[in-house]
Design a protein around this nucleic acid. Structure first.
Length: 677
RNA sequence: GGCGAGGUAGCUCAGCUGGUUAGAGCGCGUGAUUCAUAAUCACGAGGUCGCGAGUUCAAGUCUCGCUCUCGCUACCA
């Protein structure tokens, strides 16, 4: 392994269209913060970079919806995010934003260099264009009828009703969200990063060179690289973002995925004029802390950009976490299913460390995990309060009681004393080993063992009994306990910074380096300690119930919203309706279409003829149970090839709120070919 | 359908290159203890290591098939 002199830690840039929730924290910011604090405590040269990702289409849409400018939107969320991070104690050395001047200059220059050196390829393609407003429309700016579910307000990239991902060309009767007019297809030129050219290099660099990466990270990279990489557009027709710095080009910006990771560089520039040593010196180790959704960007795409540029370092490791669920359900910003950081800070003042602890102890390092309020309460009450807080309290209360708060001198040490003191160094080694391999959850457990060591020592030595006939021995015992307590302030500092600060207050102790962890004389004899207050407080059931009620209310509100039927469509003439030829037919044959999950191929006797229909209902019906059933079928829909099979019609289905499908059929058997109207 | 990750005690997870009675924390039970926020300490119960084959003297650990969960992906009329 290379000997690095400094570390650059980047944390995924949160998208500035919503506040931070526990999923972001558990996946990225808490582990990154712990690791950064650990390195700082070791006096290593480390910087931790963060910032808001403020470009991209969703922000422009939100702005439009609220009648504000995109800048208004990002200002709002950037401020909420930045404030909540600061209050929560995520120790960024700099928290920047991609709408900053520095970033625009940096991203622009980065693009320009690759452009000038011919690292991009140019491609012209047809995209929808709004003639009235004279601009190309991003996928999200196009609205139309979803070809699958008939939802009229599907976006060009995705139907929010059925969740299908789409391309703008698939929408039926597309409409510009800006003018309301029908857009026209028009040619536009864009630049692409030819990822395919980097494939052999990526293979070598990751698949051969970084087998030590986490299995989830390595596996996903391998999957992408092996399946063949495609050139990726780096520009977009949009007016919100970093303008493409090419002469004569207007109305184009850098694609948000291209500009966002450069934000790490910009933020570093804002932090220090010496930024280049963090990005370009081979003695610097770069780490990207991200969630699993970002693996491909940080392992394949961004490195390819850096490689193309040529002067930058590549990431040494990318410790990506899986996802955190909340009370057995996926965290979702749009469904308001989350514990929001800014709300937590209001509801639980002074309990920043409790959330950090719970999110770390239950971190989704190897697989998706579940956050429950009950677990939150249990870990606080049974671990922080009962194990850590209680030990500290015992040590200090006894010292105050027997020795007026002065650290007593040790006498001769028993072999058990020696063993206990040696245990501190052992724990230090374990914590280091875990942290060095990014096993943060394990590291926290290791560190907490120090408090367990103390509790056990106290229980075994029973100073409250010994005091009756051997005060000298009690002096030794309490000295050992206090040294353990002092060591806790170092050992747990990366994980519980606020609480350890408080504990240092109890002990009258200054901050100490990681290197001193394991020393048995951190507190000199005669040193005065204070009377302790509680390091952690129990959390009562009522508090947890209040949070659960809040979530239950959200769930209820969501159900109400789901129960509300999609609004009626515009009126049509009777003749329009009569254009549709819907018949009753009987399913004669039915089989799954190979290599698909949702498609069934059906032979249907429509009374007119026997025809083949492909339908996306395989998730709800098994082929054998459909044979012989009567269904309603739209027979005069233009045929379309799906998976190479020509589908000659559409089977009518009702879609439930959960997206499940139910075929519409006559309630009595009727003659095949009967018209439905 | 393809690919990736995961399926180990009630819960959350360790188990490296295959090797004595499969581990930890929490929860549960019993006992000890009272300095401490009824906290702590000891002991214990609890697992056919997703299912089925195979390789091997020996498999949670390797191979194959199946199955379930999550994610990515695919032309879901």
């Amino acid at each position: 392994m290379t000997d690095f002199k400094r570390t650059l830690i980047t944390t995924a840039l949160p998208y500035a269209n919503g506040p931070i929730h526990i999923g972001h924290l558990a996946g990225v910011y808490v582990p990154a913060d712990i690791y950064a604090r650990y390195l700082r405590l070791k006096n290593e040269d480390v910087i931790m970079i963060g910032g808001s990702d403020e470009h991209g289409v969703p922000i422009t849409l939100k702005a439009k919806k609220e009648g504000l400018t995109p800048q208004d939107i990002v200002d709002r969320y950037h401020n909420i995010i930045k404030k909540s991070f600061r209050e929560f104690g995520i120790s960024f050395d700099v928290y920047s934003r991609t709408s900053s001047k520095t970033h625009h200059e940096t991203a622009s220059a980065f693009f320009k260099k690759l452009y000038d050196e011919g690292k991009f390829i140019e491609k012209t393609s047809e995209q929808y264009y709004d003639e009235e407003n004279e601009q190309f429309l991003a996928d999200r700016y196009i609205i139309g009828t979803c070809p699958k579910c008939g939802f009229e307000k599907a976006y060009g990239d995705q139907c929010e009703s059925c969740g299908t991902s789409l391309s703008p060309a698939e929408l039926i009767s597309p409409m510009s969200m800006i003018s309301g007019n029908q857009p026209v297809l028009k040619e536009t030129k864009h630049w692409y990063l030819p990822l395919d050219q980097y494939e052999p290099w990526l293979k070598e660099w990751i698949l051969e060179g970084h087998k030590e990466w986490k299995t989830n990270v390595y596996g996903q990279c391998k999957s992408w690289i092996d399946s063949g990489l495609q050139p990726r557009a780096v520009t977009r027709d949009l007016d919100w973002g970093v303008p493409v710095p090419v002469e004569g080009v207007e109305g184009k910006v850098l694609y948000v995925w291209f500009d966002a990771p450069i934000g790490y560089i910009s933020a570093t520039k804002e932090l220090t004029p010496d930024w280049e040593k963090y990005w370009k010196s081979p003695e610097t180790r770069m780490l990207h802390f991200i969630g699993k959704d970002n693996i491909v960007f940080h392992c394949v795409i961004f490195p390819s950009m850096l490689k193309a540029e040529g002067t930058y370092n590549l990431p040494e490791n990318v410790p990506a976490n899986e996802f955190l669920n909340l009370e057995n359900d996926k965290i979702s910003t749009s469904r308001n299913w989350a514990v929001w950081l800014h709300e937590y800070l209001e509801d639980f003042p002074g309990k920043e460390d409790v959330l950090k602890y719970v999110l770390t102890a239950n971190a989704p390092e190897t697989k998706d995990n579940d956050f429950t309020w009950k677990d939150f309460q249990n870990r606080n009450n049974n671990e922080l309060v009962a194990v850590l807080g209680n030990f500290v309290n015992r040590a200090l209360v006894l010292t105050n009681k027997y020795f007026e708060g002065k650290v007593p001198a040790r006498g001769g040490l028993s072999s058990y004393d020696k063993e206990t003191l040696a245990g501190i160094k052992k724990i230090k080694g374990e914590v280091e080993k875990s942290l060095d391999s990014f096993r943060i959850r394990e590291a926290l457990k290791n560190a907490m063992d120090l408090a367990r060591l103390g509790n056990k020592y106290l229980a075994d030595e029973e100073p409250w009994k010994v005091f009756k006939n051997d005060v000298a021995r009690v002096k030794t015992i309490m000295n050992v306990c206090l040294q353990i307590t002092a060591n806790l302030t170092i050992c747990l500092e990366p994980f519980l910074p606020f609480s350890m600060d408080k504990l240092r207050g109890f002990l009258n102790l200054k901050n100490m380096d990681w290197g001193r962890l394991g020393e048995t004389g951190l507190l000199p004899v005669g040193h005065k300690v204070n009377a302790p207050t509680l390091l952690f407080e129990k959390i009562e059931d009522s508090v947890i119930e209040a949070q659960l009620k809040k979530l239950a209310d959200t769930k209820k509100a969501n159900e109400m919203a789901e129960a509300t039927a999609v609004p009626a469509k515009d009126d049509i003439e009777f003749d329009d309706f009569m254009k549709m030829d819907i018949r009753v037919g009987t399913i004669i044959e039915c089989e799954k279409v190979a290599k698909t999950k949702k498609l069934l191929k059906l032979q249907i006797d429509t009374g007119i003829d026997l025809r083949t229909v492909v339908s996306g209902i395989a998730e709800y019906y098994r082929p054998e149970e459909l044979i012989g059933k009567q269904v309603s079928i739209l027979v005069n829909l233009a045929p379309k090839k799906l998976r190479g099979i020509e589908s000659q019609g559409m089977i009518l289905c009702a879609e439930n709120a959960d997206g499940s499908l139910s075929i519409v059929q006559p309630d009595k058997k009727v003659k095949n070919g009967s018209e439905v109207r």
